[in-house]
Design a protein around this nucleic acid. Structure first.
Lengths: 192, 192
DNA sequence: GTCTATACGCCGATAGAC
DNA sequence: GTCTATCGGCGTATAGAC
């Protein structure tokens, strides 16, 4: 057979990775299927052998982006030092400029709010996964389960808000100042 | 003359108000000029007598939305009690559901990040205006200028992040829990 | 200033050959 | 599975009558 199952799997993966990168960069509506397929080095028509629609790709791309994100990628348990490092990376200009993997929570928040329930469910799943992971780490530092969950949720919300606003500002210096300011406040919270 | 200057001003205002409402609800790309004009009770073709392009309307709509937003609308000085009330209103389900005026910072953040510099400049202006207003209020409670500005920025970022994520979740109970959690943390900060 | 009508392009999705 | 080609619809912007 000319196309193996493995080959198909790889094509699908290339489409997903291209979609994540482009959707995060310019949003759902401003990226066409043709652009995604070109980035994945295929042609427009081949798309429908892998996904049933553009929206369905979006929902799956968000889940995949969540698995690649800074907030869940690190293996093993998170100690205090790793958490500080993670916050620093998340609140960096490299992240704002999308030089590596972008967090879909920060890059797609208002975009997702306009879509159907399948897409929103993906977003919620990514959000809950990140909160769970951070809560677990905070609990390990001696906090109660309740406190850990509350602080983890608050941590994610603030980091997402910071990066999301920073990306919308037009001035680089304002972006840097915003990131630094949130970082100090969150470090203070983590220091307890 | 059949159309007075006053009449034109009113038409322009209707277009702006319709644009704010619809853009916040469904984003820039998912709203057409025809829809905005229909909402403003005019026809598609009349649009270009008031604005040069859809993007130019967007930039101006963001500024207008900023002036109508919860964070700047209240007249006079903000005391501690008014600030608590303002945070409560901002972090309410009514705001998330856009039952009154929506804050463009929370509803359009990732959307604005994909546009040109004129749109981003509008967004930045609204952001700075809100931070300034809150900083002034915090300074009046005895904080240093520096602390007041830092806390004001942090306050805006967290509220925007909270509302923006809440809008993307699919479950009402999760939305409420998120709003409540951020509210307690911010109240604690304001209490000092 | 507002209307109707239309030019022009882009995009999501499908059809059919290989 | 991937390609080329195309259908059908929609959206921005413009033209011209009133």
């Amino acid at each position: 057979m000319p196309y193996s199952a493995e080959h198909k799997k790889q094509s699908r993966e290339r489409i997903l990775l291209s979609a994540i990168d482009l959707f995060c960069r310019r949003g759902f509506d401003q990226i066409s299927i043709a652009q995604i397929m070109q980035h994945a080095e295929m042609t427009h028509g081949a798309f429908y052998a892998h996904f049933s629609s553009k929206v369905s790709l979006y929902a799956e791309a968000i889940l995949t982006a969540g698995r690649h994100s800074l907030l869940v990628r690190k293996g093993g348990d998170l100690d205090k030092e790793k958490m500080r490092y993670l916050v620093t990376e998340y609140l960096s200009m490299e992240h704002v400029r999308q030089e590596g993997y972008a967090c879909p929570l920060a890059f797609l928040s208002t975009d997702v709010a306009h879509r159907d329930s399948e897409v929103r469910a993906s977003y919620e799943k990514v959000f809950n996964g990140m909160v769970d992971r951070l809560a677990q780490a905070l609990e390990a530092t001696g906090r109660s389960l309740q406190t850990a969950r509350a602080q983890a949720q608050y941590l994610v919300v603030t980091m997402v808000g910071t990066v999301s606003i920073a990306r919308s500002l037009s001035d680089t210096e304002s972006q840097k100042a915003l990131l630094e300011n949130s970082k100090s406040s969150l470090f203070a919270m983590l220091a307890d």
